[in-house]
Structures are given as structure tokens and as C-alpha cells.
């Protein structure tokens, strides 16, 4: 169920509700319990930081720094953490399916591979019970209309590529800590390893792949891409990361109907 909050008080209340932090006899939240939960639970910190900042999704580095702040601060100061929460309306999408469409579909620097990304990104649109979210212009929030969306314990589906490091790191942290399940379309590593592509494209592609390291599943566009991604997953062991499970789900052919694209998106989530 989706719940909305705006400002410090509502954000703190919604946080406690979602974390199931009890309310004491005076009607106040048990600050000590909340403090302890946030210190020990990175997912809870991710949600708290998202809420207190008006929907700005944190990076792993920011989440870690917040843990340090909590460890070195007094629990009684907990409420202050939310004092500066903006009045911007945020919505916690709880146990929903959230389709993240990219902020930009200009993938021309990726050659033929870029054309495929663009086709999938442009045709994979939200429908039915799937909520669509786009990156805000500053690349820090996921927006559905004018509301910042926080995908909490939801299924997070990413169909584009994230070439900006800030967005890639926020998406990666949301997949690891916010989402119940995280799924993405996998396009392989060609711009990194092909040599013929521009080296700038290679850096952008490496950024995109960094966002996917902690996803649960990648659906490769074909068997060759799946084999390619298995190689990438092998490389991740040096990071102490297992990497996502990789399967194959071919996108609809050029000129397919909207219904076929809807079925594809549903398949990405439910297969």
C-alpha cells in the first residue's frame, strides 16, 4: 500500500510505521528503539534517509556515513535528524512493482547496442499495477508526476542504463537495501570490451554495470548477452559480490504491439 508524507513529523511517523517501531503510552515513538534499529539495520537507514530528505535516495557511502553519525550521537538527538525534512511530498511505494525508466534515452554513443537499449527503454512503459518512476532532473529522486517515490520492499525493475554515477549509485543502493526484489534488463558488456567503441562510452557503460552489481536478477536480451554477462559476474568476485542471477528473456521484435511490450514487462517482473 502506498503512503504519502510531507515534512518532518509525517516523515518520522511514516518511517516508524514502516519499520514497525512501537508507539509509547504518550503517543510518541520510542526514539531509543528507532535509534537502535537505524544503527543496526542498513535497510532501515536507507528508508530513513530517503524519507528525511524528501525522497532523495541515498548512496551506500551516505548510508554508511549516517551510521557513523548515529553511532557517535546521543539517541535523544534522533528527532533532530528529521527537523530539516523538506515539505516536498514523498510516497513510500510498499510492496508494489516500480518500473524505473531512464532520465535520458540518448544512447547513440553505444552504437548498435544503444539502439536496442533505446527500443526497450522507450517501449517498456508502466501499466496495470506497475508504477512508473523517472529520475528527477538532479538525478537524485525517482518521481511519479510531482511526487518523489521511495520503493520500499517493492519489486524494482530497471529497463534502461544508468550512465551517470550519481544515479547509478542511488539505484544500486535502492536495489540492495530498499527493494524486496530488484530486476534489470541486461545488455552485456560490449561497449567495455569491444575496443571499437569510444572510450567515453566504455566509462559510461562501466557506470551502468556498477549499478547492477547488487541486483537480484538480470534478464539478458539473448543467450550471447547472457554468456557475456556471466563473464562480468565472474569478475565481481574481487569485490566480494556474487552478482545477480542471469537469465534470458528476449524483448519483442521491432514493430511489436503495445500488448506484446506489456507482456514483456510483466514477464520481466514475474518470470
Amino acid at each position: 500500500m502506498r503512503r504519502t508524507a510531507a515534512g518532518p513529523k509525517q516523515s518520522l511517523s511514516l518511517l516508524c510505521e514502516r519499520l514497525e517501531i512501537p508507539v509509547d503510552s504518550s503517543g510518541s515513538h520510542e526514539i531509543g528503539a528507532l535509534h537502535e534499529r537505524l544503527r543496526s539495520d542498513a535497510s532501515a537507514r536507507w528508508l530513513a534517509m530517503s524519507l528525511r530528505s524528501g525522497g532523495r535516495l541515498p548512496t551506500d557511502v551516505e548510508i554508511r556515513e549516517y551510521a557513523r553519525e548515529l553511532a557517535l550521537s546521543d539517541p535523544s538527538e534522533m528527532g533532530k535528524h528529521f527537523i530539516h525534512s523538506p515539505s516536498k511530498k514523498v510516497s513510500v511505494a510498499y510492496k508494489e512493482s516500480v518500473l524505473v525508466t531512464p532520465g535520458s534515452t540518448d544512447y547513440s554513443s553505444f552504437g548498435v547496442g544503444g539502439a536496442l537499449v533505446r527500443r526497450i527503454a522507450e517501449n517498456s512503459v508502466p501499466s496495470g499495477r506497475i508504477l512508473g518512476a523517472r529520475w528527477s532532473r538532479d538525478g537524485r529522486r525517482l518521481m511519479a508526476g510531482n511526487t518523489a517515490i521511495i520503493p520500499w520492499r517493492s519489486t524494482l525493475l530497471s529497463v534502461g542504463i544508468e550512465t551517470r554515477l550519481s544515479r547509478a549509485l542511488r539505484l544500486g543502493a535502492a536495489a540492495r537495501l530498499g527493494a524486496q526484489t530488484s530486476i534489470a534488463v541486461g545488455y552485456g558488456t560490449t561497449p567495455l570490451l569491444a575496443g571499437g567503441e569510444s572510450s567515453i562510452a566504455a566509462a559510461a557503460w562501466a557506470t551502468h554495470l556498477a549499478s547492477l552489481q547488487r541486483f537480484d536478477r538480470l534478464w539478458a536480451t539473448d543467450a550471447i548477452v547472457a554468456a557475456d554477462l556471466e563473464g562480468w559476474r565472474t569478475m565481481l568476485s574481487s569485490l566480494g559480490v556474487a552478482g545477480p542471477a542471469i537469465g534470458v528473456l528476449a524483448p519483442p521484435a521491432q514493430g511489436s504491439s503495445s500488448q506484446e511490450w506489456r507482456d514483456y514487462v510483466t514477464g520481466l517482473i514475474e518470470s
Binding site: 554515477l165 549509485l169 567495455l192 567503441e197 572510450s199 567515453i200 562501466a206 556498477a210 569478475m235 574481487s238
Partner: peptide, 21 residues
Amino acid sequence: DAIPITGREYVPAAETERFAR
């Protein structure tokens, strides 16, 4: 190592570009 492509967030973009070459 292959850090410039597997640990993109740990290196400047230019290093990744060089490593891809």
C-alpha cells in the same frame, strides 16, 4: 586488476576509459 571496470565508483572516469582501451 580490473578495478577500473568492476569498481567504477572507485576510480575517475578517465581511468576506466584508459583501461577499456
